[in-house]
Write a protein that binds this DNA or RNA. Structure first.
Lengths: 121, 121
DNA sequence: CCCTTGTCTAGATGATTTTCGAATCAGCGC
DNA sequence: GCGCTGATTCGAAAATCATCTAGACAAGGG
């Protein structure tokens, strides 16, 4: 897990400095693609958005589930996909489970998208 | 097409100013998710990366195809997915077809990922 | 100890996706 | 016009995915 997060070395946290001008290599692409894929569903995108924008930086499953038209198990499945993609982590606190984002992962994805057009000149 | 790109109003081009502290609403999520989904495949991620990092800001299909282990039609299919997601556009120039990125789309996606954790406080 | 509430796992099903070969379309040069 | 190269579209097979119901597990309250 830590491996996939240092691929682009986003540890400096600078969001506007593109970290690579060169095209992604195969292993970088294979590391990052599953993360983008996890965001490729409207429900999961809303879940992540709810989690990142929640006060305190974390959100309870019990608060998120009622906001969707799908069943509880389906929400649980989507949270698992986000978790296995390395985008969020969660823990049970008594009866409820709380999730929070993993910022390094978000930065790694943002770094790809912040690459300026024509960087290879 | 233009509709989906103004959802987050990235026209200012500021990449470090998150444009929304609130959670995405349903229609925003349904607009953005297909774009992330298009990036959720290693081949497509590499294709987009080659296009954005190419000198001159555009890349020829003829130069990209040989860099993959899959058939020409498969590359063509993946380029179509990226095109229909609004991430790239292409045009034929004589014998060859050239693709370039659509920066507004990239910014719209980056804006989601640049949202600071706990923005909803 | 049982009952209730919250969350997750398991298994099934219908829909979508990835990939290929074959065929088709677009330009260019002879 | 004919043939050649580059790119796309078409049709089909295999794999993956989203969703559901039913059931299991966890924690807390009578």
């Amino acid at each position: 897990m830590s491996k996939q997060l240092v691929v682009l070395d986003t540890s400096t946290g600078a969001c506007c400095e593109p970290l690579t001008q060169a095209a992604l290599d195969i292993s970088q692409a294979e590391t990052l693609a599953p993360m983008f894929k996890a965001l490729g569903d409207p429900i999961r995108l809303r879940l992540l958005s709810m989690i990142t924008s929640a006060e305190g930086g974390e959100a309870c499953v019990c608060d998120m589930t009622p906001q969707f038209d799908v069943s509880g198990p389906t929400i649980s499945h989507h949270l698992k996909v986000l978790r296995e993609a390395g985008l969020i982590e969660g823990d049970r606190r008594g009866t409820w489970v709380w999730y929070r984002p993993l910022p390094q992962a978000m930065r790694a994805l943002a770094a790809v998208l912040n690459t300026p057009v024509g960087a290879g000149v």
